[in-house]
C-alpha cells in the first residue's frame, strides 16, 4: 500500500505555474528523493504535502485519506507530517530539548531527551541553537520532527548548508535513523549523490513536471529522456542511426541497452563509459584533449574528435590519468548506450 499518493497536482503563483500535473506515489517505510534545480517546484511540492500550501488542482492523500483536493483541505497540524527545513530552522529562543519537545504533550517532554539521545546529542539538551554546529542543528531538527511520531518526514535540502565532510556523515546518520524507525520520508535535493545514495526511488522534477520516476539504479542506467539523464551526471548525447540493437554514431558502433526501432535517433553515453587510450586500439576513435579537470579521485576530460571537431565529448577517467590538454588520444565506449526519447 502506498503511503502518499499525489495525482495531477497543479499549483500556480499568480500566472506562473509552479507545479503542472505532478503524479507521485511513495511506498510505506521508503525514502523518495525529489531531485531538481532551483525553481523546479520541488520545495513547493514539499510544502503542499506538508499542508503549508494548497493545491489548485489534483489531489493528495496519505494512507488513503484525502489531505488536499478541490473539496477538502486538512490542516498542517492534523496531517502527522514531520518537516525538516533547510538550515534546520530551529526555534532560536528554545533549547535543543525545548525544540524537540515542542510538539510533545507536557507530561511527555522527557521523550525529547530520548530523541536527542537517538540523534547522538544526549548531552546537548540545554544548548541553544546558536551554540550548536550546523550538523548538530540539523540533527536536532530531525529529532524534533521524529519526536511526534509522524507518518511521513519531509526533508527540504537538509544537508545543503553543511560542509562536504560533515554532509556525508550527517546524511548517513539521518538515513540510518529514518530506516531504523521505519519512517516514510521524502527528501528534496539538488544534489544527485544525495538522491542516488539515500533514496529508494528518485523523482526528477523540472519546470513543475516529473521528468522521471524510478529507482536510483534504474534512473541512472536507463533514463527516459535527456533532461532526466542530465540531472544524474555528465553525459554525451549523440545523433545516431539505429539498427536493431546497434547505434551507428561518431563514436563508432555502440551496443544498445534495448532493441530500438530502426532509423535515426538520439543515444546517450555517460562520461564514465568513455575510455581513453594512448594509442589506437580496435574500434577506437581519434580525439584530442581540450581540457583536463582534475578532482583527485577522478578527473573530467573534455575532448574534440579528430574527424568531427565540432562534437564535444566528455569522459570521466581515473585521477591518475596522465592525459593533458593538447594530447592526442583514442576513445572507446564501454557498455551500452541508451536511446533517449526525443
Amino acid at each position: 500500500m502506498s503511503t502518499i499518493e499525489i495525482s495531477s497536482a497543479s499549483k500556480h503563483f499568480g500566472p506562473t505555474p509552479v507545479l503542472d500535473g505532478v503524479n507521485l506515489s511513495v511506498a510505506e517505510g521508503s525514502m523518495t528523493a525529489i531531485l531538481g534545480s532551483s525553481g523546479s517546484g520541488k520545495t513547493t511540492l514539499l510544502r503542499i504535502i506538508a499542508g503549508f500550501e494548497h493545491l489548485d488542482a489534483g489531489s493528495l492523500s496519505i494512507d488513503g485519506i484525502i489531505m488536499d483536493d478541490t473539496n477538502t483541505v486538512v490542516h498542517a497540524q492534523h496531517r502527522g507530517i514531520g518537516y525538516v527545513p533547510q538550515d534546520g530552522a530551529l526555534f532560536p529562543h528554545l533549547s535543543a530539548a525545548g525544540n524537540v519537545g515542542f510538539g510533545l504533550p507536557r507530561h511527555d517532554r522527557s521523550r525529547a531527551l530520548d530523541y536527542l539521545e537517538m540523534v547522538g546529542l544526549g548531552g546537548f539538551a540545554d544548548r541553544r541553537p546558536h551554540e550548536l554546529s550546523g550538523g548538530q542543528q540539523q540533527r536536532v531538527a530531525l529529532a524534533r520532527a521524529l519526536a511526534v511520531r509522524p507518518r511521513v518526514v519531509l526533508l527540504d535540502e537538509p544537508f545543503s548548508s553543511l560542509d562536504a565532510s560533515l554532509r556525508l556523515s550527517v546524511r548517513r546518520d539521518v538515513a540510518r535513523i529514518l530506516s531504523e524507525t521505519g519512517t516514510t520520508s521524502i527528501v528534496v535535493t539538488h544534489d544527485q549523490d544525495e538522491a542516488l545514495s539515500m533514496a529508494d526511488q528518485v523523482a526528477v522534477l523540472s519546470g513543475g513536471r516529473v521528468l522521471a520516476l524510478s529507482t536510483p539504479r534504474g534512473l541512472y542506467t536507463s533514463p527516459p529522456n535527456e533532461a532526466a539523464a542530465a540531472h544524474l551526471g555528465e553525459i554525451n548525447v549523440l545523433q545516431a542511426r539505429l539498427e536493431n540493437d546497434i547505434a551507428h554514431s561518431v563514436l563508432g558502433e555502440l551496443a544498445l541497452t534495448a532493441e530500438a526501432a530502426s532509423g535515426s535517433g538520439v543515444v546517450m553515453v555517460r562520461a564514465e563509459q568513455v575510455r581513453l587510450h594512448d594509442h589506437s586500439v580496435p574500434a577506437s576513435v581519434a580525439a584530442r584533449v581540450v581540457q583536463f579537470d582534475f578532482y583527485g579521485h577522478d578527473a573530467l576530460v573534455h575532448l574534440a574528435l579528430e574527424t568531427e571537431p565540432d562534437v564535444a565529448i566528455v569522459a570521466r577517467v581515473d585521477g591518475g590519468s596522465a592525459a593533458r590538454a593538447g594530447d592526442a588520444t583514442w576513445l572507446t565506449v564501454e557498455g551500452s548506450a541508451v536511446v533517449l526519447a526525443e
Partner: peptide, 10 residues
C-alpha cells in the same frame, strides 16, 4: 518557516 515547522509538529 518557523511557524510552519511549529504547525507541522501538530
Amino acid at each position: 518557516v518557523l511557524p510552519d515547522v511549529g504547525r507541522s509538529l501538530g
